[in-house]
């Protein structure tokens, strides 16, 4: 290795420490930015600047009469006393706690099944599971809306066969109905992430394990599940963020459920939307966004602290 970098001047012939190996391998200098730079520039423009702007406007209030004025933390104190906001947070928290584990478990099981190579028609299953992800939310809701219809939908047909009067879109079961749509949409997406991490395991490892007399279940437990841990971390983080930002499904469903079933403060994102676009309260909505971001990050951080650390090694 020829040393050309002033920030790494180490005389030849000295014993290498572990730290040195690390440095040698990865050259600690600025040239990494050449690669990360383009992403960082666009990211700054699309995310960081608007977030800073949102933070800025969250300290103002705009009135139809009286115009705009600086109000300090008024929006934030109002938010903390806002029952509608907290009920929305509570609703997505419950949603996240139930829907995310179910969806990820299904995705992981499906990934294991496909990866086991024990299925007839593996390719078909991989595509079939992933297909819903390709369907736009507007279309998925149209389709599920039909299935859910308690009179003309499939649920309606089941009701007339079974003699029941089950109504999936009643306020009590609505959240579960939405959870089902979200699960349907994203189970294949998560399956693919799990699957791709499983397919990085060299087959020689399975062969070695089989020769050592390991059972199928042991291979899953000892080799496959640990390998999935890394992707589990990221699917959990992205799913939590996704659930806390629930918007598309309930807002499209609004056009088919009873008018009073999905309120404008059903989820924090819907609340922000209504405040901002119907109520002209962009400033208050900005404060809401900042608080939600902090809550989401805190939860994601607590849940996945360790695995994130691992990635940062």
């Amino acid at each position: 290795m020829t040393e050309q970098h002033p920030e790494n001047p180490r005389p030849r012939g000295e014993a290498l420490t572990a730290e040195d190996t690390f440095v040698r391998k990865h050259r600690r200098n600025w040239r990494g930015w050449k690669f990360v730079g383009p992403f960082a520039v666009v990211f700054t423009f699309v995310f960081v600047v608007p977030i800073c702007y949102a933070l800025y406007i969250s300290f103002f209030q705009k009135k139809m009469i009286g115009g705009e004025q600086y109000v300090g933390f008024d929006n934030y104190s109002r938010l903390f006393a806002d029952e509608q906001f907290w009920s929305a947070v509570g609703r997505v928290t419950i949603f996240t706690c139930v829907q995310v584990p179910i969806m990820l478990a299904l995705a992981a099981l499906m990934a294991l099944a496909i990866d086991s190579m024990k299925l007839h028609g593996t390719k078909f299953f991989r595509i079939a599971t992933f297909l819903p992800y390709a369907v736009p939310a507007v279309v998925s809701t149209l389709m599920w809306g039909f299935i859910y219809g308690s009179k003309y939908g499939l649920v309606g047909s089941l009701n007339s066969v079974l003699g029941t009067a089950f109504d999936v879109l009643s306020p009590d079961t609505l959240l579960a109905a939405i959870g089902n749509i979200v699960t349907w949409e994203f189970v294949g997406y998560n399956m693919l992430i799990f699957y791709s991490s499983l397919s990085t395991i060299p087959h020689s490892l399975y062969e070695a394990a089989a020769i050592d007399g390991a059972t199928e279940w042991q291979i899953v437990k000892k080799i496959k599940l640990p390998e999935m841990k890394g992707s589990l971390a990221i699917t959990v983080i992205f799913s939590i963020i996704g659930s806390f930002q629930l918007f598309n499904e309930p807002s499209v469903l609004q056009s088919i459920v009873p008018g009073n079933a999905i309120t404008t403060y059903f989820t924090p994102n819907m609340y922000a939307y209504n405040l901002s676009f119907m109520g002209g309260q962009s400033n208050y909505a900005a404060a809401l966004a900042i608080v939600m971001a902090i809550i989401t990050m805190a939860i994601a951080y607590i849940v996945q602290l360790n695995s994130m650390k691992e990635q940062m090694k």
């Binding site: 809306g145 009179k151 109504d167 088919i256």
Partner: peptide, 9 residues
Amino acid sequence: TKTKRWSDD
């Protein structure tokens, strides 16, 4: 009281 205006139902 269950059917929304303009919905398919």
